[in-house]
């Protein structure tokens, strides 16, 4: 009896907890999906001005404008995707050996080096890229795809190395030793045991670099423009000119490679992650 009277208020309190949680979740959902909904609306709008809650006229005439030969959309999209893929390739080529070496270091030293890697990120982007642009101009890298890729790699590499280090550190050294003991050389061991086991983590770091590269504006602007036009630049120009339709359509275009890349990577990720969960 006494137990019942004690439990009643506590259950009530428990029930009431859902209220703030629900509100919080609702606000969060609005914060995430609200702008997206607005973006979708703008992409199919012909006319929409201030006092009206919804567009006055719907249509696809702005899509035709974006995709017209003068619109630069396809060129920018191609540039963005090429740069992103190259940035991923270069970052992984650097992050895999660096991450592996760091992962096999003793812990305090590893943490220190990773922290040192972070220092460049502490400086504001703008002055850094202005200087990079000047330097690249002198050596002829300004306005080239290679230049933009380099800028994006420096931007994403720190995090790529961090994630790769974590992925490699999670692999038990004994799994590698087991391969060595039955006759695998160091490179064979890395190829057959270490790399497949680190793959989910490496894929995560690839996603990160890819998305960062697609989104990157400051570096692309100073190093790439006007010779190499990237999608975020197009977006910026349209947005700054008050042309929300073009900006929204460009933003949607920007989604295509991101979602596509994530779908591809997720396919690779699933098989591996599942085999690990069962362990």
């Amino acid at each position: 009896m006494t137990a019942l009277t004690h439990s009643a208020p506590s259950r009530l309190r428990f029930d009431l907890w859902w209220l703030p949680r629900g509100i919080l979740l609702g606000l969060l959902a609005f914060a995430i999906f609200g702008p997206l909904a607005n973006l979708l609306l703008w992409a199919v709008t012909e006319r929409w001005y201030f006092p009206h809650t919804l567009p006055l006229e719907y249509g696809f005439s702005f899509w035709a404008r974006v995709f017209s030969p003068r619109g630069n959309a396809m060129e920018s999209l191609t540039n963005s995707v090429i740069v992103a893929i190259l940035a991923v390739a270069v970052s992984l080529a650097l992050a895999i050996p660096a991450g592996y070496a760091l992962a096999r270091l003793k812990l305090p030293l590893r943490g220190l080096i990773l922290l040192v890697f972070m220092i460049p990120q502490a400086f504001p982007n703008l002055p850094v890229y202005v200087n990079v642009a000047r330097l690249f101009y002198e050596i002829g890298l300004n306005g080239t795809i290679a230049g933009v890729v380099l800028v994006h790699v420096t931007h994403g590499l720190v995090f790529a190395v961090w994630i790769a280090t974590a992925a490699f550190a999670a692999i038990d050294v004994e799994l590698e030793q087991a391969a060595r003991s039955i006759g695998a050389g160091p490179l064979q061991t890395f190829r057959d045991v270490t790399l497949p086991l680190a793959m989910p983590g490496l894929m995560a770091s690839a996603i990160f670099v890819f998305l960062e590269s697609l989104d990157e504006f400051t570096g692309s602007y100073f190093v790439g423009a006007p010779d190499v036009n990237m999608l975020p630049l197009l977006l910026y120009n349209a947005g700054a000119g008050g042309n929300y339709q073009v900006a929204s359509i460009t933003a949607l275009l920007l989604l295509i490679p991101s979602v596509g890349f994530m779908l591809v990577v997720e396919r690779f990720l699933k098989a591996d992650v599942l085999s690990r969960v069962g362990r």
């Binding site: 087991a178 391969a179 086991l197 591996d272 085999s275 362990r279």
Partner: peptide, 28 residues
């Protein structure tokens, strides 16, 4: 190096490779 000694070590943790099947582990 360990791979040139003609020995095989069985680990306390077994150290089986989780991404390979039983047959792949044995046949590696």
């Amino acid at each position: 190096p360990p791979d040139k000694r003609g020995m095989a070590l069985v680990f306390q943790s077994y150290a089986l490779w989780p991404h390979m099947t039983v047959a792949q582990n044995i046949g590696y």
